[in-house]
Design a protein around this nucleic acid. Structure first.
Length: 692
RNA sequence: GCUUGGGUGGUGGAACUGGUAGACACGCGGGACUUAAAAUCCCGUGAGCCGUAACGCUCGUGUGGGUUCGAUUCCCAUCCCAAGUACCA
């Protein structure tokens, strides 16, 4: 099938090197590195006995082991297989090739340990020592990678070793550093080469260089970099997508050649078609419009369309200048916005979207359209929310349908059943709702309770209907409000972490918002408690402690600790009975991203203009409000804190040491011993070191 | 197998570049208010030990070592869990 591809392989090395420049999750970078799969090695040609017009080329990353070759393997799909099979082996080889064809990719992968293969009857010649080496076929060699041929070095490679053992081939030792090669392969690079002709006595680096030089000088091989990554198909035959701006014009001899349409003729618009399905003859959906959809009314356009990543690889540039009808985005807009500062996305896109996007960006940069080498400086993978299933335990072999509470289930023979998490609160089952929820539970079903309650068991599983653990945010919103849900989601834990959706503690977030409300309004009368009085030093200290922490936490995307900081702030202001507008105004701004609705309402209560909180600037931190005269020093003995003592922040370490040693409580802990050393870290800690 | 994360109370999780482990929240226990409940507020809550008492003692961040005055944090080894990936020569 004729397909368009994008030559992403041309960017393989840049895509690999660029990973060192971006602030992305390590696991994601690693996935891209593996996908690109760079290996540095050597191509080597092996002559074939009795065949003069062909040589078999192998790719190896360990050319230094070439003296350890005791066989060679071709992929069963290799195009020379029939030609290189001797008449006596013909039947066996054909049988093997046919068998290998029936094996799916999955079979090959799942039977990694099984060794299979067949001898072709042919021998090849090792170019470094002219040794005859038997040529095999085996499906552990992949036709699509490298040259589809491998030199077998059993002493250094476990797969080769397994193969050699299976076919009783020699396992020559080539490095004095190799150990126990009778039991398993040893891929070490340590030690000096033995039984290795021109590299005997050398180390790894020297030997490799020597061999490559020699192979190149004799025209037998050369150093090479190999990538696992393939070019990416850029055509869709069965689906609808952006049209490819190409038409086909016949040459004099009648061959169709593709031409790009002129830039001035862009955009090429998709035609109307009757159905979004392939044609009866199997052409792509665009083939349905073929009779009237032609370039200049006479030449067929390309009928396959672009894939999804045609658009997903660069869409953020369009966002920078979405109404521009002349170009994808103006130079000014792109130079202003540059790269994406923070991209939040799932790790499942590691080797698709996120790799293609990097590739497109490099290409666009090479053409001079965009200024940055990488499209997203920082990338965070958000964690996935998993389901938390609840279980009930039904007695087996009971005359009456009976369920036993989780804590008592081990005393009975029970079967665990999923129960709808929506009728369970804090693992306590709503019995009435449970009886109604299932028709296999009769109304006289019995329940063996603990402390008057039926406790359910629980497990973390993928969220799914069949597991009855799907929670609908609408129910929570109806019960607690959207702000509570939002605060709770942020409070749950770090952004990147995978975690079960557990609403057991959502009431804490709800309480928090109620507490915020009570700083503004009387709970009973709902009248305003706000006052205009100037803030006290304590109140300013509480507020600015929060401002600083929220700011720091935001820089780290640590939203859960932002919420807890706001909780502390609200608790402290509540204790101070602070209802002052100047203080609460700043607090509401800090809160607004997490609880936008209530924040907006409180903002208006403060006398601000409705709808303007999103434009309010972030509170300015003022360190002056946090200044303390004293610091409370933890006093530790051999690293264990025993008491705290306050000293002025201006006190010198020597003064502190003297005061600490003169202190009664300290003397008591010393029990008459003399400290061998006293460590004073200003505004941190004092540690008194006692000898044994 | 390999790669990348991660193991901290009953639970979710805090702890910035090594400096009072367990912030905040849930849950649990006790109390106040109430005819009662809801709501709210207060106190307690890592484990063990001891006491008439003190700001009491011991242990404690998967396990075993190490570095350090001091380690959840750094180093070495090891076990377990999760995710991704895999005959790539």
């Amino acid at each position: 099938m004729r397909q368009w591809s994008m030559r992403i392989t041309a960017y393989a090395d840049r895509l690999l090197r660029g990973l060192d420049e971006v602030d992305w999750a390590d696991s994601l970078k690693e996935q891209q590195r593996n996908w690109i799969g760079k290996s540095i090695g050597t191509d080597v040609e092996f002559a074939i006995e009795n065949v003069s017009d062909k040589k078999i080329k192998v790719f190896t990353t360990r050319v230094d082991t070439i003296y350890g070759v005791s066989f060679m393997v071709l992929a069963p799909e290799h195009e020379w297989v029939s030609e290189l099979t001797t008449p006596s082996q013909k039947v066996a080889v054909e049988e093997y090739v046919n068998w290998a064809k029936t094996r799916s990719e999955l079979d090959r992968v799942s039977e990694v340990k099984t060794v299979s293969g067949v001898f072709t009857g042919t021998y090849v010649i090792n170019p470094v020592n002219q040794e005859r080496v038997p040529l095999f076929l085996a499906d552990y060699v992949l036709a699509g990678y490298g040259t589809g041929a491998v030199m077998g070095v059993p002493s250094g490679d476990q797969r080769d070793w397994n193969f050699a053992k299976h076919f009783d081939l020699p396992i020559p030792s080539i490095l004095d550093g190799q150990k126990d090669i009778e039991k398993q392969a040893d891929p070490t690079k340590e030690g000096k080469y033995i039984n290795s002709g021109m590299i005997n006595g050398m180390g790894y680096k020297e030997a490799t260089d020597r061999l490559i030089t020699w192979l190149e000088a004799n025209g037998i091989g050369k150093g090479k970099v190999q990538y696992r990554m393939r070019n990416a198909v850029f055509s869709r035959q069965r689906y609808w997508g952006e049209p490819v701006p190409v038409y086909f014009k016949p040459t004099a001899s009648g061959d169709l050649l593709p031409y790009l349409i002129e830039e001035s003729e862009l955009p090429l618009e998709l035609p109307k078609i009757d159905k979004y399905l392939p044609t009866e003859t199997g052409e792509p959906p665009l083939g349905r419009a073929a009779s009237d959809w032609k370039y200049k009314g006479q030449y067929d356009y390309e009928w396959s369309t672009m894939p999804g990543w045609a658009g997903s690889s660069w869409y953020w540039y369009r966002y920078m200048d979405a109404t521009n009808s002349g170009e994808f985005a103006s130079k000014e807009a792109i130079n202003y916005w540059k790269a994406v500062d923070l991209y939040i996305g799932g790790s499942e896109h590691a080797t698709g979207h996120l790799l293609y996007s990097r590739f497109w960006n490099k290409f666009l940069k090479d053409l001079g359209y965009v200024p940055e080498e990488e499209f997203a400086k920082k990338l965070i993978n958000q964690g996935m929310i998993q389901g938390r299933s609840n279980f009930v335990y039904r007695l087996k072999d009971s005359a009456k349908v009976t369920f036993v509470s989780h804590g008592l289930k081990d005393q009975y023979d029970v079967a665990a059943l999923h129960v709808d998490v929506n009728i369970v609160e804090n693992d306590v089952l709503d019995l009435e709702a449970f009886k109604k929820s299932r028709n296999d539970v009769p109304s006289d079903a019995e329940f063996i309770l603990e402390d008057g309650k039926y406790m359910c068991g629980w497990e973390v599983e993928k969220m799914s209907k069949s597991k009855f653990n799907v929670v609908n945010p609408d129910d929570l919103i109806a019960k607690y409000g959207a702000d509570t849900l939002r605060v709770y989601e942020m409070f749950l834990g770090p952004l990147e972490q995978f975690k079960p959706w557990n609403t057991n503690s959502i009431s804490g977030s709800h309480n928090f918002l109620r507490k915020v409300w009570r700083l503004f309004f009387d709970d009973n009368t709902n009248t305003s408690k706000l006052v205009d009085a100037p803030a006290s030093p304590e109140e300013l200290k509480v507020l600015h402690t929060a401002i600083r922490k929220v700011q720091d936490d935001l820089d780290r995307f640590s939203f859960n600790t932002v919420v807890s900081t706001l909780m502390i702030c609200v608790n402290d202001l509540g204790a101070l009975k602070c209802h002052k507008k100047s203080v609460l105004r700043e607090l509401v701004i800090l809160l607004s991203p997490y609880a936008p609705h209530i924040a907006e309402e409180l903002w208006v209560a403060l006398g601000e203009q409705e709808g303007s909180i999103s434009y309010a600037s972030f509170p300015v931190f003022n360190a002056a409000f946090l200044e303390e005269n004293d610091f409370n020093y933890p006093i530790s003995f051999n690293g264990k804190v025993k008491l705290t003592l306050a000293f002025p922040v201006t006190a010198t370490p020597a003064e502190i040491e003297a005061a600490v040693l003169a202190n009664d409580q300290v003397t008591k802990h010393l029990e008459g011993k003399t400290p061998s050393k006293v460590i004073v870290v200003p505004k941190r800690i004092v540690n008194i070191v006692l000898g044994k």
